[in-house]
């Protein structure tokens, strides 16, 4: 309280905000009941809120907006963000190691019905964007065992180059025991649902399509494997699911990649024959 037996503005403001303890608040309220001056001060505090709220909002001036746009454009150029327009990867990658004929390797032994999903070794460790290196540090060929719907079918994903090997991860006891298990990595499951996806369906949720059903059987081939590997490399991550199916009536391979697991977001890539995009990459929910 001030020398004139009035409460100062800060105490009154704290009362208005409910910041005072119960005892002090009761004292101040009792005083307010008999003190017009303090009542006026309290009203003055409320008026401050009204005055602040009365200041009109103004839109950002066009000049400032343009300046910010230019700054962000410059930032994009410096940061090397990806292009929305997809480059011709077939042309760019034609000389890549994995596009060359591979040295023959022993096919992994796959027990029929031993595994239910295809698991392919990752082609490259996740790299920090925007640098994208296509060199495949693989000396020995890496093979991937492929099993669809209980019928064993192995395809090989072969890459050659120099450096350390990349391993094969096969579900079930199918890998030759003399192969040292290499770096554990994410793998993807290829299904062949035969479902004719619409654009709307590909906005998710996708789990129902890529989940245990309706994926039954497939006739995947090396071309599909290469395409999936290429997309995985472009996005610097492994797909969580791949479905050989249809998109608006066309043969299509649908790939789903985690975009942000915390918000249940996946990136959906749809390609047709020759690994050409049939639909712009989009985001979808997973479940």
């Amino acid at each position: 309280m001030t020398g004139d037996s009035h409460y100062d503005l800060e105490i009154l403001a704290e009362l208005a905000e409910g910041l005072l303890d119960d005892v002090t608040a009761l004292e101040v309220r009792s005083h307010l009941a008999i003190c017009d001056a303090c009542g006026e001060s309290l009203a003055g505090l409320a008026a401050v809120r009204e005055l602040l709220a009365a200041v009109p909002m103004t839109a950002m001036p066009l000049g400032v907006a343009m300046r910010i746009d230019r700054a962000l454009e410059a930032e994009a150029e410096r940061g090397g963000l990806r292009l929305v327009e997809e480059p011709d990867w077939d042309e760019i990658m034609k000389d890549s190691p994995w596009e060359q004929p591979a040295e023959p390797v022993a096919e992994p032994i796959v027990e029929p019905a031993a595994a239910q999903v295809i698991e392919l070794a990752p082609l490259a460790a996740r790299r920090k964007r925007p640098r994208r290196s296509w060199a495949m540090p693989i000396t020995a060929a890496a093979a991937a065992a492929v099993v669809f719907g209980g019928v064993g079918l192995a395809t090989q994903l072969v890459a050659s180059g120099s450096g350390e090997s990349s391993g094969v991860q096969v579900a079930g006891p199918a890998v030759s025991p003399d192969k040292t298990p290499l770096k554990t990595a994410e793998s993807w499951a290829v299904r062949a649902s035969g479902h004719n996806y619409t654009s709307r369906e590909l906005n998710g949720p996708l789990l129902g399509y890529f989940g245990p059903e309706p994926g039954t059987g497939s006739n995947s081939d090396e071309q599909t494997d290469k395409c999936v590997a290429r997309k995985a490399n472009e996005l610097d991550r492994q797909p969580i699911a791949v479905d050989r199916a249809f998109y608006n009536g066309q043969d299509a391979t649908i790939m789903a990649f985690w975009e942000d697991k915390t918000i249940n977001a996946v990136r959906v890539v749809v390609v047709g024959s020759n690994c050409r995009s049939l639909r712009p990459e989009g985001l979808a929910t997973w479940n």
Binding site: D8, A13, E14, L19, G44, V48
Partner: peptide, 8 residues
């Protein structure tokens, strides 16, 4: 609260 008290 303190800001309003100063502005009042």
């Amino acid at each position: 609260a303190r800001g309003r008290a100063k502005l009042a």
